[in-house]
Amino acid sequence: MTSKKILIVMSDTGGGHRSAAEAIAEATHQLYGEACRVEIADPWANHTPFPINRLGQLYGPLVNHSTILWKLIFRSTSNRRGMSILVRIFWPMVRKSLKDFFRQNNPDVIVSVHPVLTYFSIRALQEADLRISFVTVVTDLVSLHPLWLCPETDSCLVPTELARDRALDSGLPLEKVKVVGLPVGSKFAEGVGEKESLRDELGLERDRPTILVVGGGEGIGKVHKIARAIAKARINAQLVVVAGRNKRLRQRLEKVDWEIPTTVFGFVTNMRELMGASDVIVTKAGPSTISEALIIGLPILLSGFIPGQEEGNVEYVMNKGAGTLTEKPQLIAATLAQWLQPENETLTQMAQKAQRLGRPQAALDIAAEIFNLAQARSSSTQSLTLSRP
């Protein structure tokens, strides 16, 4: 049997898109082995002309240092008029590059885990008359930009019921929209052991409550300020701080004379174990970290969010009772001190609600959907016809 070629298109605007792509690739290999060949590509950065190919590099500075401007961009393009302007500006500059890219690759299925690449990829396929199955894997939990929502996709896989409602309201056919969860690494589907055993393996104190503070793979946000506020409050707990790839942050943290037991990590590949060893996580409202915490059943104290796409994540976590939002470091410390009081049942209740929301099989379900479409490609004769914004 000839192996099926799966092309996953993404953009390195935040770490969540790449981690979702890698989780799907991992699950596809786990289920189908050599029957599928998976390639992850960033066609916007690597196959469009200068200076368009550098736009993704502006995302980090925008969301970290110019949140008001990012919020304006997100909201002004989240309606039909704004999308139409966006497309008229960028499509002439990328159309040839994207069409050539897909002609050269000619996969059985294209999977998009990024909103911009969803719309522009489908438009490129339509203009090039390429009959390639297309799967949209939405990696925002609730607040979906309209670029995600192309009715011409063959399958739109969303992480939550609220995202499904948004997709249906935008005009996607009911039969194309499925709630599967957000894809995370296969380790999270395996479960974790007892907290005490995990703490032993990680070199932590076995019987001390554990607070996990993270800033994502890039170590962004107020990680240092939050960790220092918690330590200065002298909470009866131990602190685990993950600095990610942010070497400067890690060095600052390692120089501190901590008031409570504190362990500092850089970029980690054992987040499942760190979460399993912890009683609560402090994190910004990134969808991947939230999804991983829900699978583990870990209460979430959200320390901030990116305006636009992460606003709905906050409401989702709070409305489902899996956590809360507290942005000021001193209030974060005070909240944790209250939750960790011996008679307080808040964390126990949040943990139970969080675990009910987790979808550990999401990546495997997505891989199965992709493979089914790949097998059906040869019998498909319908080309994509794009609805113009």
Rank of each mutant, 00 (worst) to 15 (best):
K5A: 01
I6R: 01
S11Q: 08
D12E: 07
G15W: 00
G15C: 01
G16Q: 01
R18D: 02
A23Q: 04
I24W: 01
A25M: 09
T28L: 14
L31N: 02
L31S: 09
E34H: 12
E34R: 15
C36A: 15
E39R: 13
E39M: 14
A41E: 12
W44Y: 03
W44T: 05
H47G: 07
Q57H: 15
P61E: 09
N64V: 03
H65Y: 12
S66G: 11
L69K: 05
L69A: 14
R75F: 04
S76C: 10
S78Q: 10
N79C: 12
R80N: 05
R80P: 00
R80Q: 13
M83F: 07
K96I: 07
S97W: 05
L98S: 03
F102M: 08
N105Q: 14
L117F: 00
R123S: 09
A124P: 11
L125P: 11
Q126A: 15
S133T: 04
S143V: 00
P146D: 03
P146G: 02
L149C: 06
D154S: 14
S155N: 14
C156Q: 08
E161R: 14
R166A: 13
R166P: 00
D169E: 15
S170I: 00
S170F: 10
V179W: 00
G191P: 13
V192Y: 11
K195S: 12
T210R: 04
V214H: 04
G217K: 12
E218A: 14
E218V: 04
G219T: 13
H224F: 13
H224Q: 13
R228T: 14
A231N: 04
A231P: 02
K232N: 15
N236M: 05
A237L: 02
L249R: 10
K255L: 05
E259M: 11
I260L: 10
F265N: 10
G266E: 08
G266M: 05
N270T: 13
D279Q: 14
D279Y: 07
K284N: 04
A285K: 03
I290L: 06
S291C: 11
A293K: 05
L294M: 12
I295V: 15
L301D: 01
L301C: 05
G304P: 13
G304D: 02
G308C: 11
G312Q: 07
V314F: 03
E315W: 02
Y316H: 12
V317Y: 04
M318G: 05
L325N: 08
K328Q: 11
L336W: 03
A337Y: 06
T346C: 11
L347P: 10
T348E: 01
A351V: 03
A351C: 08
K353A: 07
Q355Y: 06
Q355F: 09
R359I: 01
P360T: 06
D365N: 13
I366H: 09
A367N: 09
A368T: 14
I370H: 00
L373S: 07
S380L: 09
S380G: 05
T381C: 03
Q382E: 03
Q382W: 02
S383N: 02
